[in-house]
Protein backbone atom coordinates (compact mmCIF):
# COMPACT_ATOMS: atom_id res chain seq x y z
CA UNK A 1 0.00 0.00 0.00
CA UNK A 2 2.79 2.38 0.94
CA UNK A 3 4.79 1.49 -2.14
CA UNK A 4 1.81 2.24 -4.32
CA UNK A 5 1.72 5.87 -3.30
CA UNK A 6 5.33 6.25 -4.38
CA UNK A 7 4.80 4.48 -7.65
CA UNK A 8 1.88 6.71 -8.57
CA UNK A 9 4.07 9.75 -7.95
CA UNK A 10 6.88 8.35 -10.05
CA UNK A 11 4.59 7.55 -12.97
CA UNK A 12 3.14 11.04 -13.05
CA UNK A 13 6.56 12.64 -12.55
CA UNK A 14 4.62 15.68 -11.35
CA UNK A 15 4.95 17.05 -7.86
CA UNK A 16 1.65 16.47 -6.03
CA UNK A 17 -0.09 19.43 -4.47
CA UNK A 18 0.25 18.85 -0.77
CA UNK A 19 0.27 22.51 0.23
CA UNK A 20 -2.91 22.11 2.30
CA UNK A 21 -1.16 19.64 4.58
CA UNK A 22 1.87 21.90 4.86
CA UNK A 23 -0.29 24.85 5.88
CA UNK A 24 -2.16 22.71 8.40
CA UNK A 25 1.18 21.50 9.81
CA UNK A 26 2.56 25.00 10.30
CA UNK A 27 -0.72 26.22 11.78
CA UNK A 28 -0.44 23.45 14.37
CA UNK A 29 3.22 24.22 15.11
CA UNK A 30 2.66 27.92 15.69
CA UNK A 31 -0.67 27.67 17.45
CA UNK A 32 0.56 25.07 19.98
CA UNK A 33 3.65 27.19 20.62
CA UNK A 34 1.56 30.33 21.08
CA UNK A 35 -0.87 28.51 23.37
CA UNK A 36 2.01 27.39 25.56
CA UNK A 37 3.42 30.91 25.69
CA UNK A 38 -0.03 32.19 26.60
CA UNK A 39 -0.35 29.64 29.38
CA UNK A 40 3.06 30.62 30.75
CA UNK A 41 2.02 34.27 30.63
CA UNK A 42 -1.35 33.73 32.32
CA UNK A 43 0.11 31.54 35.06
CA UNK A 44 2.81 34.11 35.73
CA UNK A 45 0.30 36.96 35.90
CA UNK A 46 -1.94 35.04 38.33
CA UNK A 47 1.00 34.17 40.56
CA UNK A 48 2.17 37.76 40.59
CA UNK A 49 -1.32 38.87 41.64
CA UNK A 50 -1.35 36.23 44.40
CA UNK A 51 2.05 37.34 45.53
CA UNK A 52 1.01 40.98 45.80
CA UNK A 53 -2.16 40.13 47.73
CA UNK A 54 -0.24 37.89 50.10
CA UNK A 55 2.37 40.54 50.70
CA UNK A 56 -0.30 43.07 51.54
CA UNK A 57 -1.88 40.65 54.00
CA UNK A 58 1.50 40.03 55.57
CA UNK A 59 2.11 43.74 55.93
CA UNK A 60 -1.26 44.19 57.62
CA UNK A 61 -0.58 41.27 59.94
CA UNK A 62 2.70 42.82 60.94
CA UNK A 63 0.95 46.10 61.72
CA UNK A 64 -1.67 44.31 63.77
CA UNK A 65 0.89 42.51 65.86
CA UNK A 66 3.02 45.56 66.46
CA UNK A 67 2.19 47.62 69.58
CA UNK A 68 -0.60 49.70 68.11
CA UNK A 69 0.70 53.10 67.09
CA UNK A 70 -1.86 55.90 67.09
CA UNK A 71 -3.68 55.58 63.79
CA UNK A 72 -7.27 55.59 62.45
CA UNK A 73 -9.28 52.65 63.69
CA UNK A 74 -10.55 51.50 60.24
CA UNK A 75 -7.15 50.49 59.00
CA UNK A 76 -6.85 48.02 61.84
CA UNK A 77 -10.23 46.47 61.20
CA UNK A 78 -9.23 44.35 58.24
Amino acid sequence: MMGMVNTVFLLNQATPDTSGYMIAGYIVIFSVMLLYLLSLFIRRRNLEKDYETLEEIEKMDAEKKAPAPPRPAESLQK
Partner: peptide, 19 residues
Protein backbone atom coordinates in the same frame (compact mmCIF):
# COMPACT_ATOMS: atom_id res chain seq x y z
CA UNK B 1 13.73 23.98 -2.35
CA UNK B 2 10.49 22.05 -2.71
CA UNK B 3 10.94 18.30 -2.65
CA UNK B 4 9.74 16.79 -5.94
CA UNK B 5 8.13 13.52 -4.86
CA UNK B 6 6.25 14.72 -1.78
CA UNK B 7 5.59 18.32 -2.69
CA UNK B 8 5.21 21.17 -0.25
CA UNK B 9 4.22 18.99 2.70
CA UNK B 10 7.87 17.94 2.99
CA UNK B 11 8.55 21.42 4.42
CA UNK B 12 7.03 20.39 7.76
CA UNK B 13 10.02 18.05 8.13
CA UNK B 14 12.31 20.85 9.34
CA UNK B 15 10.19 21.90 12.31
CA UNK B 16 8.91 18.35 12.91
CA UNK B 17 12.39 17.02 13.58
CA UNK B 18 13.41 20.19 15.42
CA UNK B 19 10.39 19.81 17.74
Amino acid sequence: PTEEVMGLVQKVFYFHVAS
